[in-house]
Simulated assay, not measured.
Amino acid sequence: MLDYSMIILRTIFLYALILAVFRIMGKKELGQLSMIDFVVTIMLAEMAVLAIENPSSPLLPNVLPMLVLMCIQITLGFLTLKSKKFRDLVDGKPTIIINKGKIDEEAMKKHRYNFDDLLLQLRGKDIRNITDVEFAVLETTGELSVLKKEKKKTGNLTVPLILDGIIQESSLESINQTNFWLRQQLRKRGYTEIQKISFCSYENGQFYIDLKDEKK
């Protein structure tokens, strides 16, 4: 005979536990979940269901894997904050699908992203024609970020040139510039050590530069 009171109590406890786990792991909108975040969410849900469906089983063996997953996520979160390379390995990199109005079919094939997917996401942003798009970037969450031609002209897109002290060669190529040009521009502004720059972006001829551990 089922002990309904035990099922209710376990459900309430596991609900509170999962809520606490997600609060500890950090807040993210559903559309911003990475692949790993999504997998962990599914696993936690499955573990909770198993614990509720078996009220006679000890609770600790069901709770322990959930706590282990939480610790793994916290550790991964810490490492991705510290290392750009590790962040790219875990979360992947954003991919330019449309660059200056030209579709990169190789990039689409690499991510198994077809024209139906592209048109569907463009329609979701009230864009009916690909020719209206200047840039489209497929984010690591699967979201498509779009810059329309009529809103900004070529060259006005904010381009990240340095991330965590590492020059982004692909970004330099997108604005038809070189590593030497970037270093020259930085030296003119008094920045000689690339590794000390946390973030550097370029937009419409203007640089935004933020140093690592810079005190405000």
Rank of each mutant, 00 (worst) to 15 (best):
I7H: 03
N129S: 02
I97R: 06
A48K: 03
L9N: 04
K93L: 12
I130N: 04
T41W: 03
F180H: 14
I74D: 05
K109W: 05
I162Q: 10
H111P: 07
A107M: 14
S56V: 15
P65I: 06
L60H: 01
T178D: 04
I24T: 13
N204Y: 03
I72L: 12
D117F: 10
K27P: 07
K110D: 08
V63S: 01
M6L: 11
A136D: 07
D213G: 11
R87Q: 11
R123D: 09
I162W: 03
K82F: 08
I167Y: 06
L19I: 15
L161F: 03
L172I: 04
I175T: 00
I74G: 04
G101A: 04
K152D: 05
K125I: 11
N99G: 07
D116N: 05
M35T: 09
Q195Y: 15
Y113M: 10
I8V: 11
L67F: 06
F13Q: 00
E214S: 10
K102E: 06
I97S: 06
F22L: 11
Y4A: 08
I130T: 14
I175P: 07
K212D: 08
L30G: 02
T158D: 12
L172F: 01
N176I: 12
M1I: 13
Y15S: 01
T41L: 08
S5Q: 04
L69A: 01
F78Q: 15
C71T: 12
M35G: 01
V68C: 02
L79M: 15
L120S: 03
F38E: 08
S201T: 09
F207M: 14
K152S: 08
Q168E: 14
G155H: 00
N62P: 01
G165Y: 08
R187M: 12
L44K: 03
L60C: 06
